[in-house]
Amino acid sequence: MTVAFVFLAGMTLVSALGVVLSRSVVHSALFMSGSFLGISGYFVMLNAPALAAFQVLIYVGAVTVVILFGIMFTQKPQVRRYRTIINRQFWAGLLVAVGIGAFLAYVLSAEDWGGTEAGNGPREVGAFGRDLLGVSQGAEIFTLLYEVASVLLLVAVVAAIVVSRRKIGGGVDRGVRE
């Protein structure tokens, strides 16, 4: 177990560093998929295979691919120099990073983890689904969150249709004035 954890932690951290430090945007996106895969490995170790599958499906299979797609459509992937990466926002970025790090460290040390152990995840997918839909006796906050997420996705779908809709009678815009 420890070996697996060290391997996953190393994979996640090295990939995360790669995202920040690599000189090409495409490489950053690819490193990001490695980092996401590492995180899905943590879910497996926490006995939550459903969450691991969702992590791979949504983050590796969809988010990274769409990001790569966007990069290739919008700009010519090119190698930048390090001076453009470490730019004049260096100090502000450092401040934010240290702040978030300190906050997380405080929260993690303040919480009492004594009664928690690996394997608390929703192993049974059925129970997981019932919790989300509010059919079980669990906390009902999950139902609210689920509904909020659905509304958000619906808005996104409608917005995508509105943005990409062809105007009625307008024909195809080929970018040429007639």
């Binding site: 495409v26 690819l30 998929s33 295979p49 459903a50 599958a53 969702f54 791979v56 499906l57 590796v60 299979g61 969809a62 990274t64 691919v65 790569l68 797609f69 290739m72 992937p77 192993r123 049974e124 997918v125």
Partner: peptide, 25 residues
């Protein structure tokens, strides 16, 4: 014999697109 085998199938198939994009780039 995973209890989420169908989900596993869907998730792993979706990674395939990444390889195609990598090859193209």
């Amino acid at each position: 014999d995973l209890n989420v085998a169908i989900l596993f199938f869907v998730a792993i198939t979706s990674i395939g697109a990444l390889g195609v994009v990598m090859a193209g780039y």
